[in-house]
Design a protein around this nucleic acid. Structure first.
Lengths: 128, 128
DNA sequence: TGAACATATTCGCCAAAGCAGATATTATGC
DNA sequence: GCATAATATCTGCTTTGGCGAATATGTTCA
């Protein structure tokens, strides 16, 4: 369902024309703690897959998939060298994005941490 | 919540001091198409809950929860007026964040859309 | 008081997606 | 060729979380 030119008013800043689902997917890639940690590790510099495995402590398969996901989304780029595969951040704006999110999140840390609408209400529901 | 294994990475550009899980949560809030659409709608200006319901076409309960979630995360702020509740974007940096993500996502639109690691590879998946 | 309205919360259902472990692929060396 | 190492993909299992519908809370007015 394409709704053409909804308002055209006060939002020259955002397209609204392009796919919201795609951008949501883009955000969702960083919505997982493991991937975000991987990305931050790579913001530190180029690292091989096994470096990443050692750093975050997940299974090799999981890490490989996470890195591939970050690469698909354009956050990082892979460089093959023999049997090794090195990943590095693909665009300097990625650091900007993360820093901006950090700043915003920090300004609302308390409420964010308490937000039960994301991440489950509690271990188990016990009505009172 | 799981233990966020205390990354000892050397990351001068990013705070690193604060919890990765919290920032991931922050990103995750925009990782849902419905919430992202709501946020974009609010970037257009202040709107009531029922305005939002009419705009995105989800159930009233869902919209209310999504808005509360965005508020918890600090993206928007609520203003009560009688029976109505108006939501508006809480910080100008939110627009920056979304625009930056849009720009990055646009530069990698093809691969991002094709990324099956998020959103399902599946036999025959179908998306709205 | 109660009815009508706007919003918030709860409930069961089910798809999306994280995880480890097994396996497949590719590259190097013997 | 075979063995080994580094990475990629597949297979189940389990949790997270979005959804509508029902319900609860709160507000205004008669």
């Amino acid at each position: 369902m394409s709704k053409t030119a909804r308002t055209a008013s006060v939002t020259p800043l955002l397209g609204e024309g392009d796919d919201v689902g795609t951008v949501a997917k883009f955000f969702r890639a960083l919505g997982d703690p493991s991937r975000l940690r991987l990305l931050e590790f790579l913001l530190d510099g180029e690292h091989s897959v096994s470096d990443c495995v050692a750093h975050i402590g997940l299974s090799q398969g999981r890490v490989s998939t996470h890195l591939a996901c970050l690469a698909d989304c354009g956050y990082v780029r892979a460089r093959r060298e023999g049997r090794w595969c090195y990943y590095r951040v693909a665009d300097p704006r990625v650091a900007e994005l993360v820093m901006l999110a950090r700043a915003l999140a920090a300004d609302n840390g308390a409420a964010l941490a308490a937000c039960e609408r994301i991440d489950g209400p509690e271990p188990h529901r016990d009505r009172a």
